[in-house]
Amino acid sequence: MFDWIQNIADYIVFDLLGMGSESHLSEALNFFIYDTVKIFLLLFVIIFLMGIVNSYFPIDKVRNFLSRNKLYGFEYLMASLFGVVTPFCSCSSIPLFIGFVKGGIPLGVTFAFLVTSPLVNEVAIGLFAGLFGLKITTIYVISGIVLGMVSGIILQKLKLERFLTPWVKDILTNAEKEQDKFISEKQKFTQRLPVIWNEVLKILKGVLPYVVIGIAVGGLMHGYIPEGFFEKYMSKDNLLAVPVSTLLAVPMYSNASGILPVVQVLVEKGIPLGTAIAFMMAVVGLSLPEAMLLKKVMSLKLIGIFFGVVTLCIIISGYLFNIIL
């Protein structure tokens, strides 16, 4: 599917620049060109498709549906899927959170949404597809959804309502099942398209420097680090590898798009995939800026419990992947 990009990269490096195919530098450069073009193509397609879904997605209707119907556990799946289609922008997380609480949706279900929303977003999917291929991307997306559900169910069992900030508790006690009417927007596709298009360009521009730097670093490592280099230190038998890499990853965020290309090379050089996936889930899904935002609605203790449970689930899934994959 991407052979033509490889041909372009080969042409530029070997023919245009006249570099030999044996040197580390040419290999690194070839890899860099190939990866950059492929990843941006995939990012573009996925961000664009998600933009369209997003533009048409009836947030209010879904919320009202969740709040009105008894779903016998399905609400966790729905909230988690809901997190997949909501925008990348974390500043919408809080209004959505409150919207859920207001609609009388259980806290655990809201958490399921809150976990999946940053974890499975268009940029992460695009990068995964470009770097690891369809199979790993599917695994990542599905486990992201399951992770949201499981964390949500656990958090619901812990009965954490008392740790919400006072004004959110007020909203909770005044929660109403039926929400008042909302204006649904009736816009033609031709009216939506420019908005979606601008959004796509803006997201791409935002991640561009990180991704390019990440791929450049990855390209160098690809060319210079010998195959299987990390196997010695981070083999599957090393039980500490998963929790350590997960914990390292929690505070990283702004550069998630830069880290993923590097991780891909690490996997190539021998880091087990499960460990890598756990690391990336923690990078993408949990972040300090998000924790700061959540302070408006949750006590620090609740944020701690929330992050703790999610981190634990990520570590467990890391082990699971190392066993299965």
């Binding site: 909501t86 209004p95 959505l96 919207g99 004004w167 909203i171 929400q179």
Partner: peptide
């Protein structure tokens, strides 16, 4: 302010 924003019942900013 998020509290004021929520008075308008919007879920996406």
């Amino acid at each position: 302010d998020i509290m004021d924003i929520m008075k308008y019942n919007v879920m996406a900013t």
